[in-house]
Simulated assay, not measured.
Amino acid sequence: MATQSTAPLFPLGNYTFGVKDHMSEQDPSVAARLQRLAHEYEERGQRTTVEGVIVVHDHGHPHVLMLQIANTFFKLPGEALNPGEDEIQGLKVRLSQMLSPPGSNDHHEWEIGELIGVWWRPNFETFMYPYVPAHITHPKEQKKLFLVHMPERKVLAVPRNMKLLAVPLFELYDNAARYGQQLSALPHLLSRFNFIYQ
């Protein structure tokens, strides 16, 4: 009989949230992002993106920490890797860039856990799938989601142009209209974990 993976969750109130300088987005729009992807694909081939799924609890229910940009766009912390860059080390660096206080050199402190999901972008379009469609031989992007194991306490700093939200799983579940297919799938991906509330 298979055993269920366990993961400790600490209360949202254990974490201190600060603000740091504006972090500019590379692309002013989705169309610009897809255009950059097409340009990079011509130069380097398939892009690999890594994102961290940070789970805490509030009122006895799991919440996922995610960034909100411009009041409408939600994303997990993470970004595309450079060619040949290690996935785990690359994710640690990007988590520090996005969420660590200014001047801290704490990327080695992030504990990256299990790979919980993989999404594929078959074309230069917004659609991503949790599989490679049968007619696609060269996907344009692979996105990997890793569970991030948080310490009991940590200071986080969020760029001024973004908000860090703790979104409950029940809000994400079956809510692709607001959060998109990838984020609304997180309750399914996380259901294999037995969360231990600390």
Rank of each mutant, 00 (worst) to 15 (best):
F10Y: 15
P11C: 12
P11Q: 12
P11K: 09
N14E: 11
Y15L: 13
T16C: 12
T16H: 14
V19Q: 15
V19R: 15
V19Y: 12
K20E: 10
D21N: 15
S24C: 08
E25F: 05
S29L: 06
A31I: 09
A31F: 11
R33K: 11
R33M: 11
L34K: 12
L37N: 11
L37C: 06
H39P: 00
E42G: 11
E43P: 00
R44P: 02
G45F: 05
R47A: 14
T48K: 07
T48D: 08
T49I: 04
T49G: 04
T49Y: 00
V50N: 00
G52P: 02
V53F: 03
I54P: 03
I54E: 01
V55Q: 02
V56Q: 01
H57S: 11
H57K: 05
H57T: 04
H57R: 07
H59G: 08
G60Y: 09
P62I: 08
P62M: 05
H63E: 11
H63C: 14
V64H: 02
V64Y: 04
L65V: 11
M66Y: 05
L67I: 11
Q68V: 04
I69P: 03
A70T: 08
N71D: 15
N71W: 04
N71T: 09
L76Y: 01
G78M: 07
G78A: 08
E79M: 06
L81H: 05
P83H: 03
G84F: 13
G84Y: 07
E85I: 09
E87A: 13
E87N: 08
I88D: 01
I88R: 08
Q89N: 14
Q89V: 11
G90C: 13
L91Q: 00
K92A: 02
M98G: 04
M98V: 06
L99M: 12
S100F: 08
S100A: 15
P101T: 01
P102W: 00
G103E: 11
G103F: 03
G103Y: 07
G103Q: 08
S104N: 10
N105W: 10
D106M: 05
H107I: 06
H107G: 03
H107V: 13
H108I: 13
E109A: 13
I112C: 09
I112A: 04
G113L: 04
L115S: 12
I116K: 00
V118S: 10
W119T: 01
W119M: 11
W120R: 01
R121A: 09
P122W: 06
E125D: 14
E125R: 12
F127E: 14
F127D: 13
M128A: 15
M128V: 09
Y129G: 01
V132A: 00
V132Q: 01
V132R: 04
P133I: 08
P133H: 06
P133S: 07
P133M: 00
P133Q: 05
I136G: 00
H138T: 15
P139Q: 07
P139H: 07
P139Y: 06
K140I: 02
K140F: 02
Q142I: 10
K144P: 04
K144L: 12
K144G: 07
K144S: 10
L145Y: 08
F146Q: 01
